[in-house]
Design a binder for these strands. Structure first.
Lengths: 252, 252
DNA sequence: AAAATAAGTGTAAAATGTACATTTAATATC
DNA sequence: GATATTAAATGTACATTTTACACTTATTTT
């Protein structure tokens, strides 16, 4: 039996005769970074971690990881999401591949950014402390490393765009929520205010909400009825255009 | 002076002491593939090439290339677009990063797909014959290699989605065009027919068109007035929601 | 008992979307 | 040179959706 020794994977790829065609091409590091949005009932938040490596060690960063040798990109995004939050089946969508040659000063890294929407309360229950992750209100988040702020900007834009037509924001809400909470969420995302009569009517007309018998008394004396999402109708109507927003022209 | 010899880039990256942090990570081939749409006045078309390498040599493929060592991804997409068509300033938008580990049988390659919209007549004038590129009607395109058909499907979907709200389809038209041509284009993209009175009114109401004095007599005895796009208004309104489509719910 | 607070609800006017048929300009044909 | 042919151009009435706007209700606090 031949002497066993470890050959780094890259060398195998580069010098093996089994795959002669692509030999001359440069290979790159590929990472995923996740823009994780949460909503606490009042404002939109962003989950960030402190970077563990030099340079920029200790600075705030999106949650990310290099893609592994045999790992699908989206799997990679789900892996780190699960590591950080313990959650599975989270809403996750590819945003954009960022590839400026100098975006990571150590070595060129192409990053595929994903954005995730999670119910912040579920997360709090099963937080993984190991990574020092922290929620920041999106309006007062700290400076981020590399091009991560650009990624967040693009994700916000995408979220607004989708939310204007599709019932995507329900992903951010707990199982039971009130119409005023929902309106808060929409107003936060679009940074504006809506007439509550019109908003309520529009939401109700989608038929996606099931009224509950109990009320949330935390936020008012009268109390606001809880609603649940009709998951069947939600799944069926996710791609339909529901025109949630009065003047979509104002979305940037 | 030290003896000069060539060190492959990958080795420098892997073994240099200047960048110790990322040493253990796997590096990947990264490519761009372009879905190039064109419109000939009657139907939507797709620009394809015959693959030059084994395996799948001679099979039809999207136009693509590996990303070069110091090349931005979008620059790479523009590079191959320019190589193939000689055109610059073409509408180009990132679609999605495709990263299934086995999508290329030779070696794992992550491909960032872009879609481009070009005026087919401009292209014909400056075709680069070297690459054996050919236009295919989108409805009768040949089988494509790897996951390229999936890419085309996603690009069609994205194009429909954007075209429903934004005046993006003008990118496919020559400088002068008629309203019936424009309607053909919309009907082709959405695979349906619109009432021409309503369509014309809707298009006119955007104020993006400037009526010309001359007519196109190729397609009818009476002739249809040419229009030009008002480029100032187009640029200003590109992101506005113009609601071009009667029932956007029907878009998949 | 009165005051305070946020939830919940209706209506009329305006704007937009939809359905539908005839006239017009130019060429081709007899 | 009158008639037929072809596709372009255009208007109107009705239905639906969107918008603007203010008071009542339920409950708790004082």
């Amino acid at each position: 039996m031949a002497k066993k020794h470890q050959i780094p994977f890259q060398e195998v790829k580069l010098f093996s005769i089994a795959m002669p065609k692509y030999q001359k091409q440069t290979r790159f590091l590929v990472a995923v970074d996740c823009i994780i949005f949460g909503f606490d009932g009042t404002e939109l938040k962003l989950l960030l971690v402190q970077r563990e490596l030099e340079p920029e060690k200790g600075k705030w960063s999106l949650i990310g990881s290099f893609i592994r040798e045999e790992e699908d990109i989206e799997k990679g995004a789900n892996r780190i999401l699960n590591q950080m939050t313990g959650l599975e089946g989270v809403y996750l969508e590819q945003l954009h591949a960022f590839g400026k040659p100098d975006r990571d000063p150590i070595e060129r890294t192409i990053s595929v950014a994903y954005f995730a929407l999670i119910d912040i309360h579920q997360y709090e229950r099963q937080l993984n402390d190991e990574y020092h992750a922290e929620w920041f209100p999106i309006k007062s988040a700290p400076r981020l490393i590399f091009d991560h702020e650009q990624m967040v900007e693009m994700a916000k834009k995408r979220l607004r765009y989708k939310a204007a037509f599709h019932p995507i924001l329900f992903e951010l809400l707990p199982e039971k929520f009130t119409v005023p909470q929902l309106q808060n969420l929409y107003e936060g995302i679009f940074d504006t205010v809506f007439d509550k009569r019109n908003f309520s009517r529009k939401i109700q007309s989608t038929n996606l909400l099931i009224k509950q018998k109990d009320k949330d008394k935390e936020n008012s004396k009268k109390g606001a009825y809880y609603y649940k999402l009709d998951k069947r109708k939600y799944a069926a109507n996710f791609h339909a255009f529901l025109n949630f927003i009065p003047n979509p022209d104002n979305i940037k």
